[in-house]
């Protein structure tokens, strides 16, 4: 029997999440290195139809379990199903994206199987027998290299880090009928915000505001809209009640790594930097030329964000018209 790798994917708002496609592509790369079969595991309610679309990212096999009881939350029922699939296929590696859903699921799964779990991994090296993972500690202040002991290994990858590449194959999804055990937790209500809202951890562009906004986020929201990005906030903005808690970026909030991070009126405290320092490009806009944020940035505009951000919006619109 050949070795296999599981990739567990997640659907949201009718689509497989970008973070799931990223981990699937990383799974393809690792499967080639390990000469293993890449098995994509698709679990949920109304997922069978769309499962085939995952073949274009390099899946060797697609296993589908469709059941009305698989409503994403609670996660423990997913654990039960995945445990059954693991017994049948004995994968050596299980990959998932470290979204809120993915983290809960594998934290439970690792304990149940008594196996190693690396959470929020940003890089994977494999040999025939071993995996070495990179992950950040203390938000982003420290980078750790860790090795895993035991099998199967479980690795949850950080969204927005791994590259998406097409690698089409001919695969017919295999639909499995499994008994779904009842959960200890009952779902009462699902409240999804508008499907258009981009999650900070998956956003390609983040426009974040700090104390310099004085609570006025209108321009920042507009800039995020124009760029198709998401709005983030410093801890002080959240403490002031200017933005909701889920917008907070930093060691004590969300840790993000977008392509472009635009820090508007953010001084750049140690704990804030920890949460966004892995962004590919960082732009700082601040009145205070001595703000520590500038040292951590690639580009800086010394000026009032209330003038600079609207000017930026006008210039982007102008540039678009000229294209």
């Amino acid at each position: 029997m050949t070795n296999s790798i599981f990739v567990i994917v997640e659907k949201q708002g009718g689509f497989f999440r970008k973070a799931s496609v990223e981990v699937l592509c990383e799974g393809r790369r690792l499967a080639d290195l390990k000469r293993a079969t890449l098995i994509v595991v698709v679990l949920g309610n109304e997922v069978a139809e769309s499962a085939k679309s995952l073949a274009k990212y390099g899946a060797d096999q697609i296993l589908v379990v469709e059941d009305s009881a698989l409503t994403k939350y609670p996660t423990d029922v997913y654990c039960n199903v995945i445990e059954t699939l693991i017994e049948a296929e004995t994968p050596e590696l299980i990959l998932i994206s470290a979204t809120l859903w993915g983290k809960d699921l594998v934290a439970q799964l690792a304990v149940r199987l008594d196996v190693p779990l690396v959470m929020d991994c940003t890089g994977i090296d494999v040999t025939k027998t071993d995996s070495i993972c990179e992950r950040f500690l203390f938000g982003g202040k420290i980078m750790a290299r860790v090795s895993l002991v035991g099998s199967p290994e479980i690795i949850a990858t950080r969204p927005n880090v791994f590259v998406i590449e097409k690698n089409p194959r001919e695969v017919t999804p295999k639909i499995l009928n499994l008994d779904i055990a009842e959960s200890k937790v009952h779902l009462v209500e699902f409240r999804l915000e508008s499907v258009d809202k981009i999650d900070l951890t998956e956003a390609d562009i983040i426009v974040a505001g700090g104390r310099g906004t004085n609570g006025d986020y209108k321009a920042i929201e507009n800039l995020a809209d124009v760029l198709g990005g998401a709005v983030g906030a410093s801890r002080s903005s959240v403490d002031e009640g200017w933005r909701p808690h889920e917008d907070q970026i930093g060691q004590t909030g969300k840790v993000v790594s977008p392509n472009v991070y635009i820090a508007c009126g953010i001084s750049g405290s140690i704990q804030h930097i920890a949460g966004m320092s892995t962004s590919k490009y960082i732009i700082a806009i601040n009145k205070d030329p001595d703000a520590p944020m500038f040292e951590k940035s690639d580009f800086g505009v010394v000026g009032d964000l209330h003038e600079a951000v609207p000017a930026l919006i006008r210039e982007i619109q102008k540039a678009r018209q000229n294209q």
Partner: peptide
């Protein structure tokens, strides 16, 4: 430990600021 730390490093975070 099933997850063992091999090494810790300070992330290379040198950026060359260009003021616009």
């Amino acid at each position: 430990a099933k997850v063992a730390i091999n090494s810790l490093n300070l992330p290379a975070d040198k950026r060359n600021l260009k003021i616009i």
